[in-house]
Every structure is written in C-alpha cells, then in structure tokens.
Nucleic acid binder design. Structure first.
Lengths: 194, 194
DNA sequence: CTCGTTTGGTAACGCATGTTACGGTAACGG
DNA sequence: CCGTTACCGTAACATGCGTTACCAAACGAG
C-alpha cells in the first residue's frame, strides 16, 4: 500500500474553505478554484476528494449542520435549567460575534444555492426539521405545554432567530448583539418562556 | 426622431424576468441569457437597457421594493384599525400563496447575491430600514408605547416574518399558510398587539 | 419620399468555469 | 532497497459567461 491520506480531515478543510468563500464572495464566487485557493491546495485535490462540485457543496452543508448540532448539544448539556437551555440554544443561532455572523451569511448562501438544487433543498428541510424538533422538545421540557401550544411557540421562536440573524449580518449597525438578545428575551418573556 | 421605445415598461418586463429566473434557478442560474429568454427577447435588448449585469440586478431589486411598498400602503390605507393594518402589513410578508412564496424566494436570492456586492447590500439596508420604520410607526399608532418598547416589538415582528417566510418557501409542507398565520397571531397576542 | 437616428437582434471576443487526462512523487510491503 | 500504488499538482478541454461590435430595419422630421 502507498501512502494514506487523512480523508475526513481534508474533507473538513475543504468544507471550511467552502464556508469561507461563500461568506466572503457569495454564491457567484463559489467556484472550485476559489475553494481550492482558500484551502491552500489545487483543484486537483478537490476533485479527488469529491466527484463534482455539487457533492462538495452537499458535504459542506452537511458538516455545517453537524457542527452546529454539536455546539447546541454542548450548550444544552451545560445549561442549569430547561429554560436556560432553551435561551442558550436559541441565542447561538443569532449573529452575535464574528463567527456566528459568518455562519448566518453561509446559512443564507446555502439556502439561496439550494433554490435550483433539489438535493440541497431536501438537506435543508431535514436539518430544519431536526432543529425544530429540538427546540420544541426544549419548550415542552420547560413548560409541560400540550403539543399544539408548544409547536406554535416553537415556530415563532425559530422564525424569529432565523430572521434576526439574517437582518443582523446584513445590517450589523442596526442590529448589534445587544439588540438581538433584547429582542429574543422580550419574545421569550411575552410567550411566558423567560 | 425615430421610433421611441417604452423604456419603463421594458425595464419592468426585464425586472420581472429577473425575479422569475431567480425564483426558479437561484443565483447560479441568473445569467443575462436566461433573463432575456424569460423576457422573450435577446441579450441585445437587455444590454441596451442596462449598461451591465449589476445594473440590471440593482434595478430589479429596487423595483421589487417599490412593488411591495405600494402593496403595503394599499393594505394600510384599507385597514379598519391600526392593529388591523399592522397585522395585514406583516401577513403580506409571509409566504401564503404562490405569489408571496415566489417573492420570498427572490428575497433570499437577492440577499445572497448581495453578499459579494456592496451596492446591493446598501440597497438592502436602506429598504429594510424603511420597512422597519413603517412597522414601528404602525406599532406606535396601535399602542402609544414609548419608543424603546415599540422598537423591540418591531424587531421581533419583522424578524419573525422574515424568518417564517424563508422557512415556509423552503418547506411548504411543514409551514402551510394556516400555520404561518397562527404563528404570527400568537406572537401578536403575546406582545399585546392582537 | 428620403435622410438620419433610434432600436434591438446577431455574432463574435476574451475569459472563467467545471471537469478530465496525465504524469511526477512519495510512501509502504516485500 | 526496490517496485507498486495511491496521491495530487499541472495542464488541457469544451462550454457558457458578460460584454462588445456591428448592422438591418423601423420610424419621425424635413
């Protein structure tokens, strides 16, 4: 056997490069050459790890979801109460620092790229349903509400976080971190979830 | 003088074609040839009306905002009360039928295209601030709240509508019109704005 | 009617893209 | 220490892009 490459590490490196390029240049700049340059390699490596561009994007999309899932589970495990867990999990979806801001940009970018791509859209739907189920579980754990009330509150909360993150990255001056958190807290309080 | 062309009508036709292509094929498919084909003309006309691709997109973005502004003002004028106006204005931002669903897709598409384009981002910010001011004015008219409380409620509402529309167009099965409206109404009620 | 100007379709250009083919290289088994 | 084999950079290919140049036709003015 000749030398073995660390495939998962390379795939992660290339996925990170996809995120970087998407956040900096948008969907139009998301070319294989740009990704290779951001990853510090050539297009040869990219095309050896992935059969084509769409597979590269799908993998990067999957890994992004996996990363936020791990972060959210850590937040949930370290929370003092169900309500604290709910707030922490929702707050990490906002665009509060440079890292989460970048993630929000990437999020919107992927959603836009998915417009023409049924596979990416299916990925988005699956990820979003998992996210919605998690938040609804936290709402139920925090309140004991019947399913319908918990679901309505959940829909409102995830819509709010999704929208606030998008507004915030596009106009950070109008929606600084404190304003985003105040908006989230006011809504949680209004829904009796504070 | 030779023959005169109806420039505003052609610009509107081409802008509509931009929306159609963006909604159907996403940012990657948004080429001048595709726009020309959707408009039923050739690239020659497109490049005669606009100096380049970015100007075409900027005009289409401007016209989209103008259209929603007109629709929203009509809703506001025809509403029975400030609270009814607020609800109607917010509800038109959801993805409730095929037309508003398409508009939500186009909205996300433009936002993604703006990632790499400072001019489009500035356009987005200006439009969003006008939209936010309008909603805040309606909240104030409906309640007489002091500015800070009205602003927090406004941020929550526009974030919710923005996010719900995006979730709904990407997964209409999970977020049908009735669910979107129930979410909006529950949040309005929780904020004492019903 | 005729001339001059506007209109918008056709075709080409240069360039960047996704993808493929190829070749040098470095590591491991024997 | 050598041959084998996976690795991956280089370079080419066809295609489609934004943009430009050109020209036939349509119309109003004189």
């Amino acid at each position: 056997m000749p030398r073995r490459a660390d495939r998962p590490a390379q795939e992660a490196l290339l996925s990170r490069a996809v995120w970087d390029v998407l956040a900096r240049s948008g969907p139009d700049g998301l070319t294989i050459r740009a990704v290779a340059a951001a990853a510090g390699c050539t297009t040869g490596l990219v095309m050896h790890r992935f059969p084509n561009r769409r597979a590269l994007l799908a993998h990067a999309r999957r890994l992004l979801h996996e990363r936020t899932r791990a972060r959210v589970e850590a937040l949930e495990a370290g929370a003092a109460s169900p309500r604290a867990a709910l707030r922490a999990v929702l707050a990490q979806g906002l665009a509060l620092d440079e890292e989460t801001r970048t993630e929000s940009i990437v999020w919107v970018g992927f959603l836009a790229v998915a417009i023409g791509d049924e596979e990416l859209l299916a990925l988005h739907r699956a990820n979003n349903r998992a996210w919605r189920d998690r938040v609804q579980r936290l709402v139920t754990a925090a309140t004991g509400w019947p399913e319908q009330r918990a679901r309505t509150a959940t829909y409102g909360l995830i819509s709010l976080v999704e929208g606030a993150a998008a507004l915030a990255w596009a106009d950070p001056e109008s929606y600084p971190p404190g304003v985003q958190l105040a908006t989230l807290d006011a809504t949680l309080a209004a829904l009796d979830l504070a």
